[in-house]
Structures are given as C-alpha cells and as structure tokens.
Computed example of a mutant assay.
Amino acid sequence: MQLRKAFKFEIMPNGSQIRRIKQFCGCSRFMFNRALAWQNEQYEQDNSFKFSYTKIANLLPQWKKELVWLKECHSQVLQQSLKDLESAFKNFFQQRADFPKFKKKGLKESFRFPQGCKLEQQNNRLYLPKIGWVRYRNSRDIVGEIKNVTVSQKCGRFFVSIQTEFEYEIPTHKGGEIGIDMGIARFATLSSGEFFEPLNAFKTYKGKLAKLQRQLKNKVKFSQNWQKLKEKIAKLHHKIANCRKDFLHQTSSKISKNHAMIYIEDLQVSNMSKSAKGTAEAPGKNVAAKSGLNQAILDQSWFEFHRQLDYKTQWQGGFLVAVPPQNTSRTCPCCSHTAKENRQTQANFECVECGYTENADVVGALNVLVRGRAIVHA
C-alpha cells in the first residue's frame, strides 16, 4: 500500500535565511488574507458564494504588479496559501469547520513548498527554493519520495516537516487482544490489569504559568518587558504541549506494538468537557468541581490518544475497534448485573448481586473487551 508519512526536524538557518523565512511567512499570510477579503467582496456584490482556486490564482500576476515585493517570494508559496484557503472553504461547506478567519501575525507562521526541495541526509542539510541550503538536526532517517516540505516558526525556533510517500507492506501482527478504559486517576487501564499513570503536563506547570500571567498583567502593553514575558509564556505553553505529545506517542506506540486487536471506549470528549455554568435563568450546579474535571479531561488528550492508536495500529497490522462506553464501569464482568450501586467509590467495584470485587478501571476495561468481541463477531 502507498503510505504518506511526515518527518519533522528543527532547522538552523543563518541570519539572511531567517529574514527570508520570515518574509515568506508574511507573504503567505498576506496572500491568504487578500484572497479571503476578495472572496468576501464578491459575495457582497452578487450574494453567490462559490470559491474557485483557478479564478483567484489567475489574479496573482495582477496582484504582483500592484505589490512588487510579492515577487521576492517564491510563486509556489503564494499558490499553496491559496490552496490552504480552498481547503478551509471546503471544510466550512462540509460543516467540518467554521468560516475561514483572517490570519494574524505571530500565530501559526508557516509556508509550504510542493516541489523543488532537495535533501542530503548524509550532510544534514536541506535545500529550500530561494532560501538555499539549510542545516537541520538529523535525528532519524527519512524514507520515501518527498512530496512537499512545510517550514514553520514557533517560539523563536524554526522547523521543517517533510512529507514523503513510499510503498509499505503491512506486517502480520502476532500480538493478542486488549480492552482499554480511559480515566483521570489512571490515564489508561488495560484489561490485563496493567495501567499507565497520567502525565498531567498542564497541572504540573499551571502554577508557574499563572505566576507569569500575573506578572504580564502589570506590564505596560507592547513594552520590551511585556514582550519578554509573552515569549516566556509562549515557550512554557510549547513545553507543556511537547511533554504531552511525547507521553502520548510513547504510550500509544507501546500498546499498538504489543496488541493486535485493541478495543477502546468511544468517548465524546467535547460533550464530556462542556461547561456546567448554565444560564442566568437556570444556573448550573457544582460549577467549580465540573470546571476542574473538564480541565483534567482536556489535559489527558483522550481524542489525540485515540487518533494515534488508530494509525499506529494500522501500521503494525492490527485493528482498533471503538466501543460504546455506557455503563462499562457499572456492569459486573462475572454476572453481567448492571447497577449504580456496584461502584460505591471512584476506584472500587463491588457487585451487589454476586459480590465480585475489583478495581473499577479494570472492570471497565474488561467490559470494553467483552463488548468489542461482540461487535467484531456480530
């Protein structure tokens, strides 16, 4: 099968290359905003909203004549920015995302080359059109034919994401089957009894983050000290995200390599983490407790863990099955008796019918395993 995979590395550009990269980011952002503004103007004129990449791409030569500095940017970078706008409109019309918004300087700065890039892994360098040869931190080998290269900037550092395509033969997985129960006290509990402790990256650093944000409040906006604190806060957020990603990748890789058939709860995270404030006429109850629970749920990144398990299991030749999570921790795995009284505490399970006792998360994982088998054999 044809497999597309991305390899991300940090690059080390020199001074002139950094200026070029920032200039390309600005041109890409400007072209996205210019095309979005033009599209909005067309809608106001005739009230018909049909986005056409070809029509807007034909306006590029005219815009380059009006704004000469656009010629300094690579033409493919500008075209790919219009492609991104086309994708944004497709997602909007298919109700997968909100209406496209104008891009803001300093947020998600990036641009993409669909072709023209060269790679020398033995010399740890990469050629980017109109930028030149750039050194990168070569942490692993790149496999396959390069399809596109995305350059991004975050927290004063520069990164490159190289997407490749190659033939991949799916191996035959020799592992067994397992059920997974997701939780707060235990991040993931397996039906075998093994469990993974949560990392809680945001909880670990939220005290330091709050301190920096209080200091930022007392600074003069846009002053040098204000900008320094903004950079510190951005770097801390970046560190929290990296810690979480590293934990999720290590956990999902370990589970997918050792088990061929994985059953996991199909949790609706967006519904589970909704606010309990309510309205002025009908205010909510236990708002503070629900807010803390929502924060803990989002800190676990259950959806991202599910997504990583899905594609990594396919790479290993296994299967992932999503199971309805209703009453998984209230049903006895021995006698199948379902009752709220079976789970008297958050951690302990004791069946009121047959007296079976076990950790509640292990019981949930066992029931997920049973339900998953029923779905597969149905």
Score class of each variant (00 low, 15 high):
36 L>P: 13
38 W>G: 08
47 N>R: 08
49 F>Y: 09
57 A>T: 01
67 L>R: 11
74 H>N: 15
75 S>K: 14
75 S>Y: 10
84 D>G: 09
84 D>E: 14
85 L>R: 08
86 E>T: 04
92 F>R: 14
94 Q>C: 04
98 D>P: 02
100 P>A: 14
106 G>Y: 06
109 E>K: 05
110 S>W: 00
111 F>C: 07
113 F>L: 04
114 P>I: 14
118 K>Q: 07
135 R>L: 06
139 S>G: 02
139 S>H: 01
150 T>D: 09
150 T>Q: 15
152 S>C: 04
153 Q>H: 08
157 R>F: 04
165 E>A: 09
169 E>C: 15
169 E>H: 03
178 I>Q: 03
180 I>F: 11
182 M>R: 15
185 A>M: 10
191 S>I: 01
192 S>Q: 02
195 F>V: 00
195 F>N: 15
212 L>I: 06
214 R>I: 01
216 L>T: 03
216 L>R: 11
220 V>F: 12
243 C>G: 00
245 K>H: 09
251 T>G: 14
267 L>C: 12
272 M>Q: 02
277 K>H: 11
283 P>K: 00
289 A>M: 13
303 F>L: 15
304 E>M: 15
305 F>C: 13
306 H>I: 09
307 R>Q: 14
311 Y>M: 08
311 Y>N: 08
317 G>D: 09
328 T>Y: 07
336 S>N: 13
342 N>T: 09
353 E>K: 13
354 C>A: 11
357 T>I: 14
367 N>V: 00
369 L>E: 13
373 R>D: 02
373 R>F: 01
375 I>Q: 12
